[in-house]
Simulated assay, not measured.
Amino acid sequence: MENKINKGKNLKSFKILQISKLYYPWIGGVERNLQVFAESIKDKTNIKILCCEVKGKTKLEKINDIEVLKSLSFGLFLSIPISPLFPFHYKKLTKESDLIHYHSLFPLGEVMEILLNPGKRKVVTLHYERLTRNYLMNLYKPLLRSFFKRMDLIIVPSRSFLNSKLLSGFEGKTEIIPFGIDMKKFELTQEVREIRDKIKKEYGFPILLFVGNLLPYKGLYYLIKAMREINGNLLIIGDGPQRKELVELTQKYGLIKKVHFLGRKSFKELIYFYHACDVFVLPSLYESFGNVQLEAMACGKPVVNTNIPTGVPEVSIHEQTGLTVPPEDSSALSQAINRLIENHEERIRYGEKARERVKNFFSIESVSEKILSLYEKLLL
Rank of each mutant, 00 (worst) to 15 (best):
Y217S: 01
G290D: 04
A226S: 05
F273S: 02
D43R: 13
R347W: 14
I100P: 00
T174E: 15
V36W: 04
L93G: 04
R159M: 15
L108S: 11
P107M: 03
F147N: 03
P25W: 05
K244M: 09
L166W: 09
I348F: 00
T306G: 00
V281A: 11
L379V: 15
K149A: 13
A226M: 02
V54C: 13
L34V: 14
R347H: 12
Y253G: 10
F273H: 14
V247G: 05
E248I: 14
I371L: 01
D152C: 05
M151L: 02
V36G: 03
G263Q: 01
K141C: 07
L60M: 13
L188T: 04
P302I: 08
E61R: 05
Y221K: 12
V304E: 03
P309H: 10
L333R: 04
L246W: 03
G204V: 04
P178E: 02
N305A: 13
S160Q: 05
R196D: 12
P25G: 06
R347S: 05
L93T: 05
L262D: 04
K198Q: 07
L214Q: 07
F179Y: 06
K257S: 14
D98Y: 00
M112S: 10
C52I: 05
H101I: 00
G204L: 01
I348W: 09
L72P: 01
L214R: 02
E67K: 07
F261A: 08
A226R: 08
I348T: 06
E248M: 15
S330C: 02
I176P: 03
L209G: 09
K21R: 15
E342F: 03
I224L: 06
S146A: 09
I371N: 00
L50Q: 00
K62C: 14
T189A: 11
N3W: 15
T324E: 08
N10Y: 10
L153P: 06
R339P: 04
N10V: 12
L166F: 07
G219S: 04
L136N: 10
N343G: 13
H103W: 08
L285N: 14
V367K: 09
K185V: 11
S288M: 12
L262H: 11
V279N: 03
V36D: 03
T306N: 01
D197S: 11
G254F: 07
L69A: 01
Q190N: 15
S13E: 15
K7C: 13
E31D: 12
T58D: 13
E346K: 10
I236C: 02
E67I: 04
E248F: 14
F179S: 15
